[in-house]
Design a protein around this nucleic acid. Structure first.
Lengths: 266, 266
DNA sequence: AACATGGTTTCATATAGTGGAACTAAAGTT
DNA sequence: AACTTTAGTTCCACTATATGAAACCATGTT
């Protein structure tokens, strides 16, 4: 679990996560039911978060939902610390070249966070995709990233995997996963062999800094009726190129040294 | 000011905002310089926020930036407590009808937060637009929302306006703004008369619940070389219709009562 | 009128945050 | 190489702050 040991702040953020996890506005009592905190404590957290704008209270329905302040903060996060803006041109090109859906993901805690997605055919549907999360142990991008983590970090992250069985092909043991990761590390790329959803396969490569730190992963997704693993494997060079370019750009990315910061909406 | 009196959590979030405000990765010392907190305290906050994923630490450059966890949370915030998903079809239609840029905004603290934008010509560029903030006292959407706030709330919000002068036409006094707001309240719509940027004008209407609570605003933006205020005024009925429909949908919006919450990335 | 149910406030207690100061690491200067 | 400065991290005694049981206040229910 995300270190709940970070004192009061950590606990408050836990509550925030809890609200977000509901996926819909929740009543205080619903939160209370599944909360580890006693009534009064939870109440205070919710109050604090609300008048901080991290939660939004709907007085008509008496419900709480993640607040709009998060949207503002996320804009900054997405623009600065996600790879999305840097990777955008490369993702675009890759998606055009391969004619399939391309995902860009990063690790958030022990989960995969999709920060961008390009669908060959359809136009972009951003926020509805960016920000979504998925399991690390049974997705292409997830495994590609895990494979290149430091041993110590990996150990911690692995303990946090649910190993829930989504399909008959899902890897459900630590041992199986570790074997797979070794493979991926050796090859430099990995597959999702219908481990998360039946009929859905993908190839993924990690995005590594020069120092070898994983900063993300990209993948090309397809369906079994259209192609197979061998078909996807042919795309590896393209993926690798894109990943390399993204890593390079990320490395060189320097932020404007000075300049006036205006409020910024054109 | 956003009640900084919310104990430890409030303080930590203040730090988070501070980092986000930089608009680029920052070093610890830079934060310290402009922080109200003593070194050790600030240090602990930054630590906590970092291992909570709210901040991301770049070891190569020794800098902090808003973390990816925010992106995940924002996804939930955007999907649930912003009007964007509900408003989307109406914004789309409006933008097609008027052939101009349409903005959807909500209030965040005392600022305007743009949660969606539809550009008649170009395709959507989501995260790069949603999440941006702007001043309330000199934008169409801002004034439209302020005009319909409760007196008490408005008083507080007005004290938080900077009244920075962006153009010769910017309203720079509380009195001027209050007069303007009275007008807007009477008419049900308001203009931005190049108050924020020269050459940029817009009409805006508030989005009101049946009970009369402001929940957001929409605007149509144009440039002076293409049209004028009278031209924009003709669009008011269309805007009003859209706003009404959005309000209705927001009112009726009920979230799935039960159903299994899967991890959810297709 | 009695009784839930959902939400808010109080208050004594101790846990958890605070911040001055001391320390270490690394970079710059003489 | 010794010496200073700057940036980042850890210590720890002190007390401000968070805690949560319990009481309380609304509403709606039987």
């Amino acid at each position: 679990m995300a270190a709940a040991g970070d004192g009061t702040v950590g606990k408050a953020l836990e509550v925030l996560d809890q609200v977000a996890a509901f996926g819909r506005p929740v009543r205080f009592s619903e939160l209370l039911d599944q909360s580890v905190f006693p009534k009064a404590t939870l109440y205070r957290f919710v109050q604090t978060l609300t008048n901080q704008g991290m939660l939004a209270y709907d007085p008509d329905r008496a419900t709480y939902a993640p607040g709009v302040r998060l949207v503002r903060l996320a804009h900054a996060a997405w623009a600065q610390s996600s790879l999305a803006p840097i990777a955008r041109p490369h993702i675009d090109r890759l998606s055009r070249e391969v004619g399939e859906t391309v995902h860009l993901a990063q690790l958030d805690h022990a989960q995969v966070l999709y920060v961008d997605k390009r669908n060959a055919a359809q136009p972009v549907e951003m926020f509805s995709q960016a920000g979504k999360i998925g399991p690390a142990y049974c997705t292409g991008v997830g495994k590609a990233m895990l494979a290149f983590l430091d041993a110590a970090v990996l150990d911690k992250v692995i303990t946090q995997q649910s190993f829930h069985c989504f399909t008959p092909k899902t890897l459900t043991t630590e041992a199986a996963l570790r074997t797979e990761l070794a493979d991926i590390r050796a090859n430099g790329y990995g597959f999702d062999r219908e481990e998360h959803e039946p009929g859905i396969i993908c190839v993924a490569v990690p995005i590594l800094t020069e120092r070898g730190r994983v900063i993300g992963a990209i993948s090309v997704t397809s369906v079994t009726r259209r192609t197979n693993l061998a078909g996807l494997e042919k795309l590896v060079p393209l993926l690798r190129d894109a990943a390399t370019l993204i890593a390079r750009d990320a490395q060189n990315w320097r932020f404007p040294d000075t300049a006036d910061q205006s409020t910024g909406v054109k």
